[in-house]
Amino acid sequence: MSQHFKETPHNAITDSGIARVIPCKELDAGDPLKWLSLGLQDLLRTPLLSVFYGVIFAAIPWFISYLVAMTGWHLIILPSIVCFMLIGPFLAAGLYDISWEHEKGHKPTLSHSLGAIRRNAVNEWGFGILLMVLMIFWLRVASLIHALYPQHQIESLESLMPFLMLGTGVGAVFCVGMFFITAFTQPILLERKVDLATAVMTSINAVWVNKVPMFIWAGIIFSVVAIGFVTGFIGFIVLMPLLGYASWHGYIDAIETKRERDFV
C-alpha cells in the first residue's frame, strides 16, 4: 500500500463546514495502474463470484437495449436507468466486499457480499437516490439541448457543430462532477459508519487533491467502459468486476485511517 502521504492541505472543500472531510493521501500518477493490477489479482482469485456480478452488469444495458429495440419506445430508457441507479450501488458494494474479504485473508462468499449493503443501508440508499436524481437531471438537460436544435434545422456538419459542441461541453462538465462525487463515496460508506455528506465531501476532496492520478483513473474507467460497449456489453462480464476491485484498492490507497487496519 502507498505510505507516502502528507497532511491534507486546507482548501475550500475541507473548510466548507458542510460535513466532516476525512483526510486523504497524496497519490502518484502510476497508482491507478497498480489498482488495476491488484483488481486483476482479486478477479483471478474469485472467478465465479466475479462472473456472477459481471453478468448482472452486462445484462442490465443489454436488457435496456432489447426493450428499446422491441418497443421502439426510447422513453423506456429513463425508468430503466433510474432503476439501475438505485441497484448499482448494491452491486458495487458486493464487489468491494469481495476485495475487502481478500484483504482480511477471508474467503469471499456470495451471501456475505450480498449482505454488504446492510452495513450502512440508510446512507447507501441515499447514495443511490442521489445518483438517480443526478441522472434524471442530466437526461432532462440533454432533452433540452436536443430541443434547441430540431432535426429539420440540421442540414450539414456545419449546422450540427453548435449542437455537438454544446452537448459535448455540458456532458463533460456533468461527467467530471459525477466523478468527483462518486470516486470514493461508495467504499467509504461500506467500510465506515459515516453519513452520506461526509462520504461525498471526502470523495470530492480526495479527487481535488490528487487531480493528475485521479483523472488518469477516470481515463482508464472511460476506456474500459467504452470497450464494454464496443463488445456489445459482453466485455462488462469481466471489466466491471475488474473496475470494482480496482476501485476498492484505490480507496484503500487514497483515504486515510486514524490507525492502521488490523484485519482479522
Rank of each mutant, 00 (worst) to 15 (best):
Q3V: 13
Q3P: 07
F5Q: 10
K6P: 00
T8W: 03
T8R: 03
H10P: 02
H10D: 05
A12L: 14
I13L: 14
G17K: 07
G17F: 15
G17A: 09
I22F: 08
I22W: 10
A29F: 14
G30C: 03
G30R: 07
W35C: 07
W35R: 00
L36S: 07
D42R: 04
L48V: 15
S50A: 04
F52N: 12
Y53C: 10
Y53H: 13
A59W: 11
A59E: 12
W62L: 09
I64R: 06
I64M: 12
I64G: 08
Y66E: 10
M70W: 09
W73I: 08
S80Q: 05
S80G: 09
S80P: 06
V82T: 04
F84K: 04
M85Q: 15
G88S: 12
G88F: 15
L91D: 03
A92N: 02
A92G: 00
A93T: 08
A93E: 01
G94Y: 05
G94H: 06
G94T: 04
L95T: 00
D97E: 06
W100A: 01
W100V: 00
H102V: 08
H102T: 03
K107D: 13
K107W: 10
P108C: 07
P108K: 10
P108D: 06
T109I: 11
S113P: 08
S113R: 09
L114G: 14
G115I: 15
A116S: 03
R118K: 07
R118G: 01
N123R: 05
E124P: 01
G126S: 12
G126L: 11
F127Y: 15
M132K: 06
V133P: 10
L134S: 09
W138R: 05
V141N: 15
A142R: 12
Y149N: 08
H152A: 04
H152N: 05
L157R: 10
E158Q: 11
S159F: 14
P162D: 13
M165F: 14
T168R: 05
T168W: 14
G177C: 05
M178K: 00
F179E: 04
F180V: 03
I181E: 06
T182E: 13
A183G: 12
A183T: 13
I188H: 06
L189D: 04
L189H: 01
L190V: 02
D195K: 10
D195S: 06
L196M: 06
A197E: 02
T198I: 09
V200D: 11
M201H: 04
T202I: 02
I204S: 07
V207W: 01
W208I: 03
N210L: 05
V212H: 02
V212R: 02
V212D: 02
W217Y: 05
I220W: 11
I221L: 08
S223F: 14
S223G: 11
S223H: 04
V224N: 02
V224Q: 01
V225C: 01
V225H: 00
V225Y: 02
I227Y: 00
I227M: 12
V230H: 12
G232L: 01
G235W: 14
G235E: 09
L239T: 11
M240L: 07
M240F: 08
P241A: 07
G244F: 12
Y245E: 11
A246K: 09
G250M: 10
G250S: 09
Y251T: 08
Y251I: 06
Y251G: 03
D253H: 00
I255M: 10
E256G: 07
K258W: 08
R259T: 14
E260V: 12
E260M: 13
R261Q: 10
F263H: 11
